[in-house]
């Protein structure tokens, strides 16, 4: 069941085959870009995420599905409210695989 967290929420998971982080879109698909995410603005809309969580499990495409809280920055871009989800959304904050 989707948790009733404070604030607007989006639904995230990871692709079963690749492990990539994805976000549920308005059209019911999964996007690699947070900006495509469907936003739940009321407790009722958050509740509806339960259906998508069940569908994701059934479809066997996306795993570890859960909602998190988002806000908008000064430019109107969606950003996660919590540092963990910020890191998860943007990828490692360091330059890796370089000498």
């Amino acid at each position: 069941m989707a948790k009733k967290l404070k604030g607007d929420q989006v639904l995230t998971g990871q692709l079963l085959r690749e492990g990539d982080v994805v976000f549920l879109t308005e059209g019911g698909n999964w996007s690699l870009d947070l900006q495509d995410a469907k936003i739940a603005t009321t407790p009722e809309k958050v509740e509806e995420f339960d259906l998508f969580i069940a569908q994701a499990e059934e479809a066997n495409l996306v795993i570890d599905v859960y909602p998190f809280v988002v806000e908008r920055d000064d430019t109107g871009k969606l950003i996660p409210s919590h540092i963990r989800e910020k890191m998860r959304t943007t990828g490692p904050s360091i330059v890796y695989a370089e000498l």
Partner: peptide
């Protein structure tokens, strides 16, 4: 789809495969 994630998770962990923040 013959194995659910709940059944598969302990099997992958026994082979050192974790699901981390961005990837396996």
């Amino acid at each position: 789809g013959k194995l659910s994630e709940a059944h598969f998770r302990p099997l992958r962990l026994m082979n050192g495969v974790y699901l981390q923040l961005h990837a396996y």
